[in-house]
Design a protein around this nucleic acid. Sequence first.
DNA 1: GATGAATGAGACTTCATTCAT
DNA 2: CATGAATGAAGTCTCATTCAT
Lengths: 200, 200, 200, 200
Amino acid sequence: MRKVDPVKHAEKRQEILDAAERCFIRDGFHGATTASICTEAGISPGHLYHYFPSKEAIIGALVDANLKRVAERFAAASAAPSGVVAALVSEVDQKKPKKTRNARLMLLDMFAEAERNPVLAEVIRKHSRGILTLTADLVRRGQDTGEIDRTLDADAVATVLMSVIDGTRLIGIRDPKLETTKTFGLVKTMIARFLAPPPT
Amino acid sequence: MRKVDPVKHAEKRQEILDAAERCFIRDGFHGATTASICTEAGISPGHLYHYFPSKEAIIGALVDANLKRVAERFAAASAAPSGVVAALVSEVDQKKPKKTRNARLMLLDMFAEAERNPVLAEVIRKHSRGILTLTADLVRRGQDTGEIDRTLDADAVATVLMSVIDGTRLIGIRDPKLETTKTFGLVKTMIARFLAPPPT
Amino acid sequence: MRKVDPVKHAEKRQEILDAAERCFIRDGFHGATTASICTEAGISPGHLYHYFPSKEAIIGALVDANLKRVAERFAAASAAPSGVVAALVSEVDQKKPKKTRNARLMLLDMFAEAERNPVLAEVIRKHSRGILTLTADLVRRGQDTGEIDRTLDADAVATVLMSVIDGTRLIGIRDPKLETTKTFGLVKTMIARFLAPPPT
Amino acid sequence: MRKVDPVKHAEKRQEILDAAERCFIRDGFHGATTASICTEAGISPGHLYHYFPSKEAIIGALVDANLKRVAERFAAASAAPSGVVAALVSEVDQKKPKKTRNARLMLLDMFAEAERNPVLAEVIRKHSRGILTLTADLVRRGQDTGEIDRTLDADAVATVLMSVIDGTRLIGIRDPKLETTKTFGLVKTMIARFLAPPPT
DNA sequence: GATGAATGAGACTTCATTCAT
DNA sequence: CATGAATGAAGTCTCATTCAT
């Protein structure tokens, strides 16, 4: 008799995820309550559980979606015809401050949560491996073209670059005033000098 | 004649802080309960409040102590007679994996918490400014001796280096297997190339 | 189509208030616990907070309802066609001893609580002003008909009468044995002599 | 070897009672903590129990002392050579507002507490009986001299007068603005008319 | 699907009282 | 006498989750 309309179901699910993201950014993973998410999404508390089996599952889905988005953005940058180093450096660029802040908020909550939550940790590891592979390939391409120092280990370089980008994301907690174009520019300089082939 | 023994009080306070740190590392700021801290410290639930007015105050004291320790360690490295770049790079070095992990756990919880807790945010900012000043001075010294590229802005360099170190600390969440000597070595290479004066 | 049933909600809320009143009469505002109220109301500890944001709010609602009831009862008496003095005196009458005792218990807890709780104090003030106005009007009516001494200030008389009634309510604490028909009768005599126009 | 100096002991005891009274007036019987009383009295928490076996005992002693003082003041007024009605009415007089307020605070807390505390209730009853006896005697004296209506039952009159005075004390909770000289004056008028012998 | 009433474990905190020194 | 460290029961309130309708 009754059939679930899978499209509508998926749409509603996404709406809830969006609402949850707003709540998490506003209040953090722990500060946000399922009740607040339901209010934000305009549904009743019980109804949430038609779409997600638990608050943890919402977090998991959100983290997965977020990291996937980042990975895809990076993949797009890699595929772009600009130089290899330019692609590598693209993630450092300063977006709108508000976006930067939101990204940082989610990143920190995600990472902090992942420390005690193996499922989340695995999600992060999965996406990290993807980005790492992509980056390493990019580095190897740069080495082939001579843009990048051939003596560097491409995989290790990828790891270091990912860590640099993560570090860049955190600057704003140390002190919001440090989150400047100058800082980001200097990070790019650092990466450029790091990767540059040694002068002959 | 009979007075409070401030030494004993401070000692007990420290014991509680140590116990709390173990709990926080094990369960996180949110997962750890005041009850678990009391059990770990071997005191009764109410007694905690003779030493700290709230759980938040414990976190605050712990964060302050932790960051102070880091800053002091770094100050010591700066004062050492080894080269300037060596000092700058010292923080990257891999300690015992367990210590690395613990440091990361605290760092993440601290930073995540600070996003919603202005008091904590200010504590972090205070210590960050201290480290930044120290680093910038070190960089300037390096520029004076010719070890470091004179065209770089010392303050901006300090910011970038701090961010790189923060990023290094996070590698283990992305994937514990990446937390290798090789990775850390390559970070040092990056910093060295970044700071090196341009070949004439 | 499907909506919250506001009637049921209000009913449950009232049930809880009734349960709370029983608890407060039995144990006092401080002696009664939210747990005991929940047990009395037959609900779980957490569920209380679907209907009231805090224990204080329950007290507030109860005090408001109680005073409102008193004011309405008095308003009804005022409207009755019996003589003005009879109406004024009606509040003194002795009800069933148990009711008298309960009323006293609530009154005392209310008043004691109001000393430190401005919100409660305002609730009491609000209803007191209502009763005062009503009484003063009644007195003026009596003065018009010649039942009451025209030289008395109606507002001041209202204040004194309210205070007399409050005092009457407290007799039972001084000594339960004093709470007799004789005492109450004499209070009526006092009021009658007080209000009576002077003999010409 | 060690003898307790009973004088010093009694003095310290009184100091503690004074401190406790300040605390109770400030915070109420429930709001005041033994810790705050100790701080106010300048002693350590443990030391309190050298003078009183419990917080309840402090309240008991304080209530006893307070009521005794009231009774004595009233006894003094009774003994004064002024008219009988003047003596009866003396308790109504408005003291300094602050004193009035403090008296009310203590009275309410005392009475509210006595509702659930039989020991306190008995203390109150004891002193009430004393005042009642005194008042009744005074009334009888007035009846002998012709100042007071001879048809009134002296004991019942005493009860009513005590209740009127209690009521007067509460006026300020209903609304602080009502605690005026005019109100108190009118209460005196009421009492005078109440007691006056009927015109022949 | 959808609601919101209901649950219950458990968190943080308070405070009168005791005890070792 | 005097201190203050220590106890532990209990209280208010939160919140993820379930269930009847």
